[in-house]
Structures are given as C-alpha cells and as structure tokens.
Nucleic acid binder design. Sequence first.
DNA 1: GTAATTCCTAAACCTAACTTTAGCTCAAGG
DNA 2: CCTTGAGCTAAAGTTAGGTTTAGGAATTAC
Lengths: 159, 159
Amino acid sequence: MPRSAGISIGYLAERTGLAVSAIRYYEAQGLVEPWRNAGGQRRFHRADIRRMSFIMIAQQFGFSLPEIRGFLRSLPGGRTPTKEDWACISDSFRSHLDQRIETLVKLRDNLDGCIGCGCLSLPNCKLYNPEDRAAQKGQGPRYLMGDRPETEAAAENDP
Amino acid sequence: MPRSAGISIGYLAERTGLAVSAIRYYEAQGLVEPWRNAGGQRRFHRADIRRMSFIMIAQQFGFSLPEIRGFLRSLPGGRTPTKEDWACISDSFRSHLDQRIETLVKLRDNLDGCIGCGCLSLPNCKLYNPEDRAAQKGQGPRYLMGDRPETEAAAENDP
DNA sequence: GTAATTCCTAAACCTAACTTTAGCTCAAGG
DNA sequence: CCTTGAGCTAAAGTTAGGTTTAGGAATTAC
C-alpha cells in the first residue's frame, strides 16, 4: 500500500473512536473532504485523524458543527497542517472558549448574588437579561424571578 | 377574581416571556403542575412565575429539563416556596454549576498545554479521555490527536 | 348576546447530530 | 471462485426541546 493511498473510513473510525456513520455525517456537513478510490470508497488523509479528534474536542466544549467548520476553515487547504497551523486554529478556539467560560462565571456570580441571597423578586435582577436572551417584547414589567418586588404580589390590577 | 383562582397560562407566558406551548411542554415534562378550573383550563400559582424563571436560567447554564426537574423536586410540595427554599435549591444548583465550570476550565488548560503547544500527537494527551467520554473499546492504541508519537507515522504495519 | 380572544388536545413538524435499515457493491482471504 | 466483511447510498428513525396546525370549547369584551 503506497503511502499516498490514504486510509479507509473504517480505520479512521477505529483510530478516533467515532462511528463510521458519524464520519460520513461530518463529510456531509463539510467538516472533512475525503476523496474516492477507484471503487468509489472514501479515502482519508492520515491528518484527518487529528482533524476528527479536534472535532470531538470542540464538541465537548459545546461548539456546534457549523462553528467547528468555521475553525477548520483556517487550516491550509493544500498541505498537511503543521503544528503551527494547529496552534493558530487553537488560538481562535481558545478565545471563544474563554468567552464562554467568562459568561458562565458571570452567570454563576449573579446566581450567588441573586438566587443565593433570596432576592429573586428584585426588578433589577441581573439574571433577567443575561447576554443575548433579550426578547422582552415590551408588555410592561416582568420581573425575572417573578412577582412584584415586595407588595405581597396579590390583589393588584392584574391585567 | 379571588386570589385563590390562580393565573392563566397566557398571563404566565406574558410574565415570563415563555411561549404558551413551551409552558404546556414543561408541564408534560413534569416541571410544573397546574390544576384545572371548571372549564378545564390550566391555572397556575403565582409562584410558578418564579419557577419558570428558574427553569429558563438553569437552561442557560446548560442543564437539561430532567436535570432541572431534579433541582425542582427539592422544593416543598404543599406550600409556596420561600426565599429559604430557593436559597437551598440554589446551593445544589451552584455546586453542579461549579463543577461544570471547573470541567471547562480544565479542558481549556489542557488545550493550552496540548493543542496550543503543538503536542497534539502525544499518546498521553489529557484531552484523550476527559471526564465521561470513555468508550475506548480496546482495539489497540488510539492516540487522541492522531498518528503515532513521532515515528513519521507512515510505513508501519497499518491494519 | 354575540364577537373576539384565549385555551384545549392531539398530532405533525422542526433543528441538531447522529444511527439504523435496506439493498447493493467492493475488496481481501482461502 | 466464492465467501465474508467493509463500504456505498438514500431514506427513515431517534432524542431534546419545542412550535405549528387543526378543530373545538371556554372566557372576556362590548
């Protein structure tokens, strides 16, 4: 087997722990581009083992396949990615990751200061509109953790 | 409207920003238990506004509905939850959360020390089997980021 | 009292990320 | 040459977390 022959989907699956069907799915999603041999079977680069592994790790971090495809686009097209290529992609990856962690920590701290202290009803609850879940839609005040501030929340003019 | 009459699903939706269909779905998942009025329509406690908000926040933190149901089970059944009840549930919630953040940070640090430095091929890569994605299945060595340690990874006895 | 909302259920549909199935073809071993 | 395992495609199924639709019934507003 000449080294240019590439590896089969089964071998790639075995080496990465992925299911064969998952790899085919990733191809359909544009995450990897095998070529075909004479008989129409997929052949992968050895470097695709690393590529698959990167996909699996990125997924653990909660990135979607389209996002991961974005990361992978920065890899060189024509040649096998070098350590430096991966280090570079890893930078972009890590900054997304830092942001994600920061968001989680911020949310946790708000939790400490909001649910933890029992102030759930406060209209200025920071958990009310964290990051992107805006919506809001007008409609008068809706206090995130519910009810009116401290008015017994009962016999008012409920719409 | 007597205060024991409860609130309608539409009002609950308006106050929380949830879709009516989402609230019905949460009921089906056992996250809230409204009663019915004479005409068969759902009636909710005012405290369910807070309950729904808790669900929304927990989802932002990445918890699944079954997990959230677990958190909510610790709330008292017969009476309206107090600040203390929420503070208590929040403790359990926060410890799960801390663990989740810790995992993410650990993964990020491994990324720094593994992808970042270009050592992707190392057989002792810590990203190989982080937390629960074990599987492994025997089958001989599979190095997470692929390839053999540093043997040019070529003309060996590829199965 | 009637019109407009709101609510009801059941079932179908939706996206993401895959897996399973069915029916065939290709490749490797004896 | 023949069998067996690995691969192929297309389509359907799966889980989570919902939304949409269809066809009624209950409430509310005037």
